[in-house]
Design a protein around this nucleic acid. Structure first.
Lengths: 222, 222, 222, 222
DNA sequence: AATGAATGAGCTTTCATTCAT
DNA sequence: AATGAATGAAAGCTCATTCAT
């Protein structure tokens, strides 16, 4: 009896633990599969199988497919929120700050392909799911960059006529598209676009573009 | 008698015409809906309804859903193939040529949202369909730009250390993403991102970036 | 004008002729395909294509698929009706008569595979179609054999306790099944079961079985 | 506690049992309906309805219509495989052995109309399905009979010039066709062809035909 | 908490038949 | 008489979701 009494909380803990674990495994599998196939192409059965957990539990934990997808989005976007907060340091030069921020963003994408793909499905679906569940991630990005750019303009590093939103849009474009359209562009290269050198090469190119463009300056005729 | 003699081919022509028209209507509706919802989200029923033509005819004309989708891709990619051939004029300056090419590409995308979206679905699906049916559109792009850039390098307009493939990737990124992620970024602006001014503003930004970057040159400290 | 006047009847005749021909071609194609695939497996489209005549005409000439099938049955069964009338000649010995009748039936089947198959589909479908359109072909068979057997019994060639219906059933079985199940049994032989020698061998076997089975032994004359 | 301990396997068993039962019910219904209407005429919906089980489960258990049909064939052919092994006893006379074998086959068919019909659909379809899934049932039959006949020939009961394959073909024909074409021939009789007396009468007729057909006359012992 | 079986709605595809010329 | 396009009903099959244990 006492054994039982002691056993119950123990069991509870274990149960809770296993429960958490099951939830996490479902979420992990769902992330992979939703990222791979998108909200329409993904199958609940496949997620259940991949997670090794009974399909019924998906409904127990997450309600339904759509809510599971929302949860996947949430957990993935949380990562980038975390990233965006730790950016700026006004003791550095604006160029350093830009470089650091872009680098952080670029490598975040490199390491989180699921995020890249999920956000792309979302973009195509007009944010049909994310709008419901997510605070505007764009606003956060702007906020983070605003400081850098304003500082840069003030200290005469950055041209004052620059529209920061356009720059932001461009940075996003230059980074995201590399991962996004990787497969279609890969044939142009011998090396794997995800190799260390290729990543660094791309990042440098992006930074060059952002800072200097591709043309000579001063002497160029037009 | 002559009336009869003329009637037969006329009937044939009318029929062929109507048939062509039906096919075209199906293709148009399919383009819209596949662009909107992607190959997985699109429904054959919906396409039939939208085209005002019996569902059975879709199968008569195109075989099945997948082949219809392939045909939609083909017809949309044909447009950009057409575009990519008429680009270069080496009598102009490299900057002019780049400007003209980018502008052409940018406005092509602006006017062909279906293409933007279709190519994005394809990218996410790893080109699973387009690989079957399409010659590499990337190669064509490279070809078109190669001349411009080589000319630019030779005439000392363009830095020789530039990797043309990266530039191409970047131009694609900067243009495509504007339309691609339009909806997610729209909240940052008051004006419709597809308005004439906004489009022109974006194009200018892209051209500036490509040609000059965002930093001052010469005097900039780092 | 007179030219026209003459032309009209000519056209009519030609038309009628072409009409007959079209009908015949449809019927021929339908026979092949219904025999091959059965009433359920056959497709109207396939018949139209095989006959080289527009599908619509099938409906013009025959009403619908079922009636076309009925017509196919009718035209095929007519052949065997024709056969069954010219059987008996009481000047010959009963054994000769039986032999001739069985031989006629056996080679009829050999030469009319469509009939074999059509009658088999019908048997499986419980005569669901033939009952509607066909006079009992079985009755005819019995009639034809009755004379032979009664003559045989009277002249003491055939055992009097024989049930003619059973014999008839057996002859039908022994002949039909050879063609019916040919494909399944073929592996047991090296030679094609439809070759001249194999056919003759089978017929001999059947005759041996029938005659030695139903005739007195020892005293029988041949 | 023990109750719980026992409960888990019990539940498993019950579930498995119900699952097996569902599978079996589907198979039973499918057998009836495929036998009745053939692979082309049968409808999955009808099978679902007849089995009282959701259509979806048919696909869960059997894959698709064709595989279900294959399974139906397999399970039915297994019955006759079982039959064919227990045939011969060389202590008996050849005639006894033949009689016993034919009787066994005949009554097997009488009691398994589904088998008769399924094998007939297969024959008409050129074994298109069975070839995929079934070991040659014909070979087994030959094997079983071979012993009897060789023994019969050696002991001078059976004529040595007999082609056993023809005899086998004939037995099959004489037995199968009785059930196969029963409906078409029924009008010739007052009594139901499936009644006990009629069956026995038919079997006697077949045996007479076979034995008097293939055995020596006069000297043969029985 | 966890499971396997079951369900109904809906999807893609097929087919016999008819319309318009 | 002949044709090609078009149709609606129904077939095979799939999926998200729920039941029973």
């Amino acid at each position: 009896m006492e054994g039982n009494a002691r056993k119950v909380p123990l069991n509870r803990n274990r149960r809770e633990q296993r429960s958490e674990e099951s939830r996490a495994r479902i979420l992990a599998a769902a992330t992979t599969i939703f990222a791979e196939k998108g909200p329409d192409g993904a199958r609940v059965d496949e997620i259940a199988k991949a997670s090794g957990i009974n399909k019924r539990m998906i409904y127990a934990y997450f309600g339904n497919k759509e809510e599971l997808y929302a949860e996947v989005l949430r957990s993935n976007y949380n990562k980038i929120y975390a990233l965006s907060t730790k950016a700026v340091d006004l003791k550095r030069t604006p160029k350093e700050n830009v470089t650091r921020a872009v680098r952080a963003y670029f490598y975040f994408l490199a390491e989180n392909e699921a995020f890249v793909r999920l956000s792309s499905w979302e973009a195509l679906n007009g944010g049909r799911f994310s709008r419901k569940v997510l605070p505007s991630f764009v606003d956060l990005l702007v906020l983070a960059f605003d400081d850098i750019v304003k500082d840069g303009i003030q200290r005469k590093f950055i041209r004052p006529n620059i529209d920061i939103r356009q720059v932001l849009f461009s940075i996003q474009a230059l980074c995201l598209t590399y991962f996004n359209r990787r497969e279609l562009m890969q044939p142009l290269w011998q090396e794997d676009l995800l190799s260390g050198e290729m990543l660094e090469a791309r990042l440098q190119h992006i930074l060059d573009l952002i800072t200097d463009g591709i043309f000579y300056h001063g002497e160029a005729v037009e």
